[in-house]
Amino acid sequence: MISRAFLFAVVMIYTAFAAGPFLWVATMSLRTTTEISRDHYAWPEKLHWEKFPDAWFNSNYSVYFENSLLVVISAVIVLTVVGAMAAHCFARYRFRLNRLAYFIIFSAIIFPPQITIIALFQILVDYGLYNSLIGLTLVYIAVQLPLTVYILESFFARIPADLFDAARMDGYPEWHIFWKVSLPIALPAIATTVILNTILLWNEFLYAVVLITDEAKRTLPLGIQRFMGDQLEDVGMIATGLMIAIIPVVIIYIFFSEKLIQGMTAGAIK
C-alpha cells in the first residue's frame, strides 16, 4: 500500500515536471506578449485564438509547415526503406566485414552533431545543396540512419532463419523475401523507427539553422526563431508557433504510442 502510494507520488511529480512547461507554453500561446510580460504565469484573461491564424497566414507558418512536412516525410520514407534493407543484410547474410561495417555505422551514433556540422556545411556548399530542402533531407537521412539500422537489425536478427529458408523453398528470390517476409514481420520495429525519426526530425533545429537561410525554405523550428529579434522577443508569438509545431507530434504520439511501446518491447516472434 505504502509502496503504491510512493509510486503514485513519483509518477505525479514526474508528470507535473514533464507536462508543466507544456501547459505553460499552451497558456502563453493564447496570451499577447504584453499580457505575458505583465505576469508570466497568469491564466489567459481573454483567449486570443486569433493568434493562431495570425501566425499561420501573416507570419509564414503555412510555408514552414509545408517545408517541415516535405522534409520529414521524405526523410522518414527513405530512412525506413534504406534502414530496413541495411538491417536485413546485416542480420541475414554472412559476408566479409559484416560486423566491422555494422560497428562503424553504429559508432556514428556516439558523435555529437557539433563535431560533424562544419564539415557537413562545407560538403553541402561544394555540392550545391546548401540552403536547399533536398540538402537538409539528405543530412537528416544520414544523421538518423545509424540509429534506425541499429534498432531494426536487432529485430531482424531475431526472426527465425527457417522462415527465410521456407520462402526460398517456396520459390522466392531474396528481394521478394525482404518485401514479403522480413518487412511485414518487422512491422512493430519499423513503426518504432518511423515514430522516433518523425518526432526527432520534426523538432530538429541545429542542422536546419546552419544549413537553411532562405525565408521560404525554413522549417517549423526555424520559423519560431523568426520572432526572436536582437532588440525584442515576441514571446507570445513564439509560444503560438511552438504549439503549431508540437500539435502534429502529439497527434502522432497519441495514435501510435501503443505501437511504439509494442515495437520497443517486442520479443519473440512465435
Binding site: 527465425p160 527457417d162 522462415l163 523453398m169 514481420i185 512491422l187
Partner: peptide
C-alpha cells in the same frame, strides 16, 4: 521442405 520449427509465415 517441412521444417522442424514449421516456419509458418506469422503474418
Amino acid at each position: 521442405m517441412v521444417f522442424q520449427s514449421y516456419a509458418l509465415y506469422p503474418h
